[in-house]
Simulated scan of single mutants.
Amino acid sequence: MQPITKQITWVYTEDIAPCVRFYRDVLGFEVERDAGSAMIFITTAGARIGVCETFEGRVVAPEGGMITLLVDGVAAVDAWHARLVAAKVDVQGAPSHMPRFGLYSFFCRDPNGYVLEVQCFLD
């Protein structure tokens, strides 16, 4: 069996332009592929976020899902929080410790309401 080389998490939108501004310009993710109505953004070596305009049953449905972005250390979480607050992103409160899971994180929403968590592990 061939190994998996990359992973893409897809989210959907009615209008791709605000998503491009969010993922490329605010988060700073490089565009790997631009198909006009769909774009793939590089988050790290083997992981991607894809944004696609809705079609044939693919709808904007952020309920129950979340994209977690891992960073190295509390200071990095705090820096990302400051960056997103300054960019007027829909940030869902300040970073906090979650002892139950051994992590420190905060949450925000992309232009379509998809939840993103920026976190670091504390152990």
Rank of each mutant, 00 (worst) to 15 (best):
G36A: 05
T68N: 13
Q7N: 10
T13I: 00
D72M: 01
P62W: 12
R24Y: 00
Y23P: 06
G50S: 04
T43C: 14
E32R: 13
Y23H: 01
V91W: 03
D90V: 01
G28V: 03
T13W: 08
F55Y: 13
W10E: 04
R83D: 14
L84W: 01
L70M: 03
G57D: 00
G64W: 10
A94V: 11
T44M: 09
I67G: 02
S96L: 00
E53H: 07
T68R: 15
I42C: 12
V26A: 13
P95T: 02
P95G: 07
A45D: 14
A61C: 08
Q7T: 15
A82V: 08
I16G: 05
W10R: 04
D34T: 06
A47I: 00
V77D: 06
F29Y: 10
R48D: 06
K6C: 06
F41V: 00
V20G: 05
A86R: 12
A79D: 12
V89K: 03
R83Y: 09
A87S: 13
R58Y: 14
M39T: 02
E32D: 13
E63M: 11
E14N: 15
R83Q: 15
A38D: 02
T54Y: 03
T54G: 00
R21W: 11
I16L: 13
I42S: 14
E56R: 14
A75V: 00
A76Q: 03
F22P: 00
A86L: 07
Y12M: 00
G65D: 06
E14W: 10
M66N: 08
T54D: 08
P95M: 02
E63S: 12
Y12S: 07
I8G: 09
G50I: 04
A61N: 11
A76G: 04
G46R: 03
F29P: 05
A38P: 03
M39H: 12
F22H: 00
M66T: 14
D34I: 06
F41Y: 07
F55D: 12
M39I: 14
T54S: 03
L70I: 01
Y23A: 00
I16D: 02
P95V: 05
Y23M: 07
A35S: 05
F29M: 10
E63L: 13
T13C: 15
T54N: 05
T44Q: 12
W10H: 09
P95S: 01
G50H: 06
T13Q: 10
M39E: 05
A82S: 13
Q92T: 02
V31Q: 04
I8W: 04
P95A: 01
A61I: 02
A38Q: 03
R83C: 11
A17D: 12
T68I: 06
T43Y: 02
E56T: 11
V74F: 09
V26N: 10
R24N: 10
K6F: 02
L70R: 14
V77A: 08
G73W: 02
V26E: 05
V31S: 01
G57W: 06
L70W: 05
W80C: 01
V71A: 02
R24E: 04
A61H: 11
V89C: 10
V20K: 15
V89G: 01
